[in-house]
Amino acid sequence: MENAITESFPRAGFRRRFASWVYDLLIIIAIFMLSGYVCVALFVLLDHLGLINIVRNDFDIDWNASHIMYRIAFNSWGVAWVCGFFIYFWSRKGQTLGMRAWRLRVQNLDGSLISSKTAIKRLLTTLFGLGNITVLFDRKNKLSLQDRLTTTEVVVLSLEANSD
């Protein structure tokens, strides 16, 4: 797919955005779980090497008895992987997997892919997807909160454009 698309596509409404959000939510849960398994394995390895000291009951980590920094590190690790998922797909492909299923693409107003910096700004302003609710009140422009704050748009691709 080219960096800029010469064809103009209509902006996406709330229902498509929400459906895409549901698909991506399932993927996010899987990413968070997998990253959690990796993080626990790293904690157990570091504990075994004597580099950190976590409280364990057999193989399980006792999060309540361990230092709070381990919980913060664990959750931060998972959130970082989830954020990386969105930043990568928005800036490299213009679509997450859920967006691809619903033929949606996030782009700059000129049709070009957004930068990683813009993807980070968009992620911070999306409010866990709640920013899309503003599309319900802006039926004419179909712009969400994150669209307005980052000067981007989400468009509905044709079948041909989505298959590239």
Rank of each mutant, 00 (worst) to 15 (best):
I72W: 09
V155D: 08
A65G: 04
N3D: 11
G111A: 00
W77Q: 12
W81K: 08
L97Q: 07
W63Y: 04
R122F: 10
W21R: 00
N64I: 09
G36S: 06
N3A: 06
H48M: 06
A30K: 00
L124R: 08
G111V: 04
T6L: 15
Y70L: 10
Y70I: 09
L136F: 06
T6F: 14
M69V: 12
W102Q: 12
C83E: 02
G36C: 08
D110L: 05
A4D: 12
N64H: 02
L34K: 02
A4W: 06
N64L: 06
T126F: 07
L104Q: 04
T6V: 14
F137Q: 09
K121N: 13
S66W: 01
I68H: 10
W81D: 07
F14D: 03
R71S: 11
L124W: 03
I114S: 03
Y23G: 01
F9Y: 14
L143Q: 12
D24N: 01
L97F: 15
I120V: 15
L136H: 03
E7S: 15
S66L: 01
L51C: 15
R11C: 14
L123M: 14
I61H: 04
L149C: 04
R92Q: 15
V135Y: 07
L104E: 05
S8N: 11
I31D: 02
R16W: 10
A73V: 13
S163K: 10
Q95S: 09
N162L: 01
L113M: 04
V82C: 11
G50W: 13
S91Y: 05
E153C: 14
